[in-house]
Amino acid sequence: MSALDALQTALAAEHAAIYVYGDVGAHTSQSAEPELFATVSLLYRAHRGRRDQLELMVADRGGVPVAAAPTYELPRRLGTPSAVRRHAMGVEQACAEVYAATVASTTGTDRAWAVSALGEAAVARILLGGESEDFPGAPELGD
């Protein structure tokens, strides 16, 4: 995969993450679950920031940033805080794997950016109450 393709894939993953986090946020009560709401809001902003950065990175390399899909598949039930956390962790897991692949397909400043993004996705898992991992984004290395 070329570096530009890898960046486009990461951008597509961020589009999906932002969409899902919008739904996750809508299912999180700020009054009943203030800590979870704050975490979801923080991570939503982080994904928007990375999306904006990726769009610039793609354009700087002569690409046309991939657009967001009209819609994404959402879980039918997000009625509990644990379901919200679980679903958000799934988003972070997917982003971590995409960013790990981005690291492998890039060099220089692009790779440094992807390394940082992978670390942020890994920490997001902890912020959401998840367990730490041995190889975030590359779980097969632990097999």
Partner: peptide
């Protein structure tokens, strides 16, 4: 590079706790 980045991310998770 991918493996090393993943190892760094794993440590970031521990440091974040």
């Amino acid at each position: 590079a991918r493996a090393l980045a993943s190892m760094s991310a794993a440590l970031r998770q521990r440091v974040a706790v």
